[in-house]
Simulated scan of single mutants.
Amino acid sequence: MDHTDYKASGGNMNLPKYVTNMPHQHALILVGSETIYGVHMTQYHHEEHKYQMILELELPEPARKEYLRMRKTWPEMPLVLCNDVNDPLMVPDLGGGTRQDFAANFFPGLFPLDQLKPGEEESMHFFPWSADIMKPVMPEPFEVSVRRVVLFRPFNHQELLPQYANYLIWGEGEEAHMTHLQTAHMASNKYDAPAFGPDYDHIMSLKHAPDWVHPSLLRAGITVSVPSIRLRAAGKKRRVSLPTLRPFRYKQKFEVLYRGIGQPYKARAGYTFVFGPQVSTSPAIMPVPDMSLPGAEDPERTMFMKEAPMEYWADQRKTSNLKDEIGNE
């Protein structure tokens, strides 16, 4: 596919001449042990990342063994699979089956944001798992195969945030996982720079597969609402009220409503790998914590994603404090 029209189209989504995406690198959070899935990290304000997608993946044996070892060592660490910089692709390539395999590597955690260069995070081409920021786990890129697509969901900017949070539960055998079904509502008017949200990403596992879901339904994925997570405050104005801390701690029991109606069913939380609005929501409308509240400076209030161990930082990121280095120039 020729993407030469991208600059005249994808960069101006108000009146696209030709709808496409720029092939790019993408981040998938790896979950599962017996069956391994990759869950795409969303960004509402970047055309390339305006998708929720879950893929069942096959990793080559050395990468699979190392992934399982690291998952056992760091059970709540986000292990992030990224397609190689020399193998850029569009999310719809995978969601639509145009591509069944790609070159990739994976990384533990997120580089500490307070160690980034000033303005680096705001750069249009910023990618937290690039070679100048993070070291990959495996010495060389490896081939990843897509066994099937569990979910492919492009965002529609006219969708409204529901009153209560909706989630997808999916899995196989004794394992199950859960991710928040996000909205990317357009929050700006025609006189402002486009901004989308607010909403949050949440990727977690359950402690075990719920016994109230038929295995075929679990494999395909079911939708549930979570009455304990209210996204709009009560009252006529129904102001957005996102959770500021990850909703479920390890082993915590909670209730869900199948298809958002009927009797509640019980679930038990496993580990959370990603939670928060910081990556997905447009920066211009990021929720600001109320600093008068206890624990308002807790970083979990804007993003829960464990920091990368220093051994996986790129060498040049270890040598000095980047902010001090730039300030002395």
Rank of each mutant, 00 (worst) to 15 (best):
N83G: 13
V80R: 00
F106P: 02
E66R: 14
Q52G: 08
L94E: 06
D93K: 08
L113W: 14
R71Y: 06
Y67R: 02
P62Y: 11
A63Y: 03
L59M: 00
F106Q: 06
L68K: 13
L79S: 10
V85E: 15
P62M: 07
W74C: 04
D93L: 02
P112E: 09
R99N: 12
D101P: 02
P112D: 11
F102W: 14
G95Y: 04
R71H: 11
V85A: 14
M77T: 08
L57F: 01
A104F: 06
E56Q: 15
M90W: 10
Y44P: 04
N83T: 12
Y44S: 12
L59Y: 05
L94S: 11
E66P: 01
W74Q: 05
A63L: 04
P62Q: 07
V39L: 13
R69M: 01
P112I: 09
E56V: 05
L68C: 12
A104Q: 07
N105F: 06
E76H: 13
D93C: 09
P60C: 05
Y44N: 07
M77D: 05
W74N: 08
G95A: 06
Q52T: 05
P78M: 00
F106H: 07
E76W: 05
L81D: 07
L57Q: 05
V85G: 11
V39W: 12
M70D: 05
V39M: 12
E47S: 13
N83L: 05
G95H: 04
R99S: 12
Y51E: 02
H40I: 12
R99V: 06
M70E: 02
P92W: 04
D101A: 14
M70R: 14
V39Q: 11
V39H: 11
V85F: 13
D84P: 09
H49N: 10
T42R: 12
Q52I: 03
E58S: 15
N83Y: 12
Y67F: 11
E56D: 05
V91E: 00
E56K: 15
M53C: 15
K72P: 06
P88F: 08
R71E: 01
N83F: 10
L110I: 05
G109R: 00
R69S: 15
H40G: 13
A103F: 07
E47N: 14
M77F: 09
P112Y: 14
L81Q: 10
D101F: 13
Y67L: 07
P78R: 01
L110D: 04
D101N: 15
R64D: 02
K72F: 03
M41Q: 14
D101W: 12
P108F: 00
R99D: 08
L113M: 15
F107H: 13
D84C: 10
L81W: 10
M70F: 03
T42N: 13
E66A: 07
M70L: 15
N86S: 13
V91K: 08
V85I: 15
R99Y: 11
F106T: 04
G95T: 02
M53F: 04
A104H: 09
Y51Q: 03
E47G: 10
P75A: 07
L68T: 12
N83V: 08
P92A: 08
H49L: 06
E76P: 03
Y67G: 00
D101I: 03
